[in-house]
């Protein structure tokens, strides 16, 4: 005997997933849409982590960005307007083995879905939420969304949006049990990829707000930021988003930031200008509700049926 017998058939056939394995239908977003870059970034992360496609679920609500699940070759749930987060939390409650990506827009998340937004952050279940913020309702052809800049002309406000926009970052930094909050831009694929990867690795709900260009209905909203990178404030530091030096050099304006410092994160966001990108806040010690909702997962089917019958026996028809 010189060790165990060498038998290649003892191993189940290994699977390797390429980028194509995560591709779904042909993306029907407008030419030049920022969503395409986010789609590629997510597919690349899935490939890097070699996530079996059947173990990934992309969940979305309604909006341009919510077409996302159709373009990914994994399981998907294209839900109701404003409701991707309850669906995602439901999935994570009973299927902790699945990786959940949530695609939601500024209208979907911050307007009709705002009630769910608050509580999903509080539940802090292990998933990644990508807020595609293009400052407009694009799918319905340019209505004012909660994040539309003041004065921008839309179909609902032809003479310009009347109210100041909602800042999702300052809002979330005030919400209970938030555990990971980052901001990135779709026009820098390297930073976008690194930010989403950090959110994926985070244990808990990784929320990433993506400043996303809509070339059709809100073209020019981020043009200043794109043309003049000094308008952006890149947050650096050993615990922040790590990118190659060549990518970091594209952002002349940098600041070292400790993501555990909630007060400084708030101050940075409230300044509004320059616009921060990077990891604003992270606290992995925050409780995750899925740890509670996953109880009893190994319960045999027969026991489940017995428990249900016992419960139903309490009622008479």
């Amino acid at each position: 005997m010189f060790g165990l017998k060498s038998d290649p058939s003892t191993e189940l056939p290994e699977r390797y997933f390429s980028l194509e394995d995560y591709e779904g239908g042909v993306a029907r977003w407008c030419p030049g849409c920022g969503d395409l870059g986010v789609l590629t970034a997510v597919q690349r992360i899935c490939r890097a982590e070699q996530l079996p496609p059947e173990k990934v679920v992309c969940v979305s609500g309604i909006g341009c960005s919510s077409r996302f699940p159709h373009y990914v070759g994994t399981y998907g749930f294209h839900g109701l307007h404003g409701r991707p987060l309850p669906v995602a939390c439901g999935i994570k409650s009973r299927r902790p083995d699945l990786t959940v990506w949530v695609a939601t827009g500024d209208g979907d998340c911050c307007s009709i879905g705002a009630g769910h937004w608050i509580h999903a952050l509080r539940y802090n279940m292990d998933m990644v939420v990508m807020l595609f913020d293009n400052s407009v309702y694009g799918l319905t052809k340019k209505q004012t969304s909660p994040t539309t800049p003041q004065g921008m002309s839309t179909n609902t406000h032809p003479s310009g949006a009347w109210l100041p926009p909602l800042d999702p970052l300052t809002a979330m930094l005030g919400m209970t049990n938030v555990s990971f909050l980052a901001q990135t831009v779709d026009w820098n694929p390297a930073h976008l990829h690194a930010t989403l990867a950090a959110a994926y690795r985070h244990k808990g709900l990784g929320f990433v707000r993506i400043l996303q260009r809509c070339p059709t209905y809100s073209a020019g909203v981020f043009e200043d930021l794109q043309r003049d990178p000094s308008r952006l404030l890149m947050l650096t530091g050993p615990r922040g988003i790590q990118v190659e030096p060549a990518i970091a050099n594209m952002f002349p304006n940098k600041r070292e930031h400790d993501p555990s410092d909630l007060g400084t994160a708030r101050a940075i966001c409230e300044a509004h200008d320059p616009v921060p990108i990077g990891l604003l806040f992270q606290d992995e010690s925050r409780p995750c509700y899925d740890a509670f909702t996953n109880h009893g997962l190994g319960m045999p089917t027969a026991d489940k049926v017995a428990a249900l019958e016992k419960e139903l026996d309490r009622f008479t028809v």
Binding site: P31, G32, C33, L36, P189, A190, I247
Partner: peptide, 12 residues
Amino acid sequence: TALCTSCNDCRN
């Protein structure tokens, strides 16, 4: 290449 956002415009 590192800056490409995979928008397909050029490939179209």
